[in-house]
Amino acid sequence: MNPLVSEANKWVLASHNQGKIREIGELLAARGIVLRSAADFSLPEPDETADSFAGNALLKARAACRATGLPALADDSGLCVTALGGRPGIHSARWAGEPRDFHAAMNKVNDALAASHDEDRSAAFVCVLALVFPDGTHRLYEGRVEGEIVWPPRGDGGFGYDPIFRPEGEGRVFAEMSRAEKAGLSHRARALAKLMAGEFPDD
């Protein structure tokens, strides 16, 4: 049995994002992990003050672990557009300001690309997962999907920037795929696959 699963079968996900909770929960359930959300414990969302995906993921996971006493999993993820110097990156969720509005954020990405006069539409979805245990140990796992920005937005599924991101080798954007299809390709699924395979990179 995978040693991660045998240590504890109940984890808390340090997120209030229902899309992430559903996506990660479905993947972990198949491996015997019961996932609780931050909302189940009325946990506030900590300020994401780090300057990297890994830093923000660790910040959130450590806060949730301290508050609940359970192993805590947090992800920080975003869309990194080559022609925009990697933006929106760690600012993906709030790219268009508050309240979070991904329709406005997608328009902002398209407008910024047009203003750049750069024909490069390559981009990547990046996810870093941080798993923190009550004894203070932690592990980090990164998943990455290369692709390109398309316009106009397409599809009714997914969430966030899924309607404008087409992964390499696919004719469809993430929002045109079923949840199962996206789960087989997504940056988050790739990070989770590393976690469940017990691939422990150096801290």
Score class of each variant (00 low, 15 high):
Arg22Met: 13
Phe53Tyr: 01
Cys80Trp: 00
Arg87Leu: 15
Pro44Met: 01
Lys108Leu: 15
Glu26Trp: 06
Asp76Trp: 00
Ser122His: 14
Val34Trp: 15
Glu48Ile: 01
Leu59Ala: 11
Glu48Gln: 00
Ala74Leu: 05
His103Thr: 08
Ala114His: 10
Val109Glu: 08
Lys60Ile: 10
Val109Asp: 05
Val81Cys: 11
Ala54Ile: 04
Ala114Lys: 14
Ile33Gln: 11
Gly55His: 00
Thr68Pro: 01
Ala104Asp: 09
Gly85Leu: 14
Glu45Asn: 03
Asn17Asp: 13
Leu35Ala: 10
Trp95Val: 06
Gly32Ile: 00
Gly78Asp: 09
Lys108Arg: 15
Ala72Thr: 07
Ser77Val: 11
Ile24Thr: 06
Ser37Thr: 07
Ala30His: 11
Glu98Trp: 05
Arg87Asp: 08
Ser37Gly: 11
Thr49Glu: 09
Leu70Trp: 13
Asp40Val: 02
Asp75Tyr: 12
Cys80Val: 02
Ala30Ile: 04
Ala64His: 12
Glu45Ala: 12
Ala114Ser: 15
Ala67Gly: 14
Gly25Met: 11
Thr68Ala: 05
Thr68Arg: 10
Asn56Asp: 02
Val109Cys: 07
Ala30Arg: 14
Gln18Val: 11
Val109Ala: 05
Ala38Met: 07
Arg87Pro: 07
Val81Arg: 02
Leu43Met: 03
Ser122Met: 07
Ala67Gln: 13
Asp51Val: 06
Asp118Ala: 12
Gly32Pro: 05
His117Cys: 07
Gly69Tyr: 12
Ala54Asp: 03
Ser116Val: 09
Ala114Val: 08
Ile21His: 04
Leu59Pro: 02
Asn110Thr: 04
His91Cys: 13
Pro46Ile: 01
Val34Cys: 15
Gly97Glu: 11
Ala57Met: 01
Leu35Gly: 02
Ile24Val: 13
Pro88Leu: 12
His91Ser: 11
Asp111Asn: 10
Pro71Gln: 12
Lys60Arg: 09
Arg100Pro: 13
Glu98Lys: 02
Asn17Tyr: 06
Ser52Tyr: 00
Phe41Pro: 09
Arg121Trp: 05
His16Trp: 07
Ala57Gln: 00
Asn107Ser: 13
Ala74Lys: 06
Glu98Leu: 15
Pro99Ile: 02
Asn110Gly: 05
Glu23Asp: 04
Asp101Gly: 01
Thr68Gln: 05
Ala54Ser: 13
Asp75Lys: 07
Trp95Tyr: 15
Pro71Glu: 12
Ala64Val: 03
Ser116Arg: 10
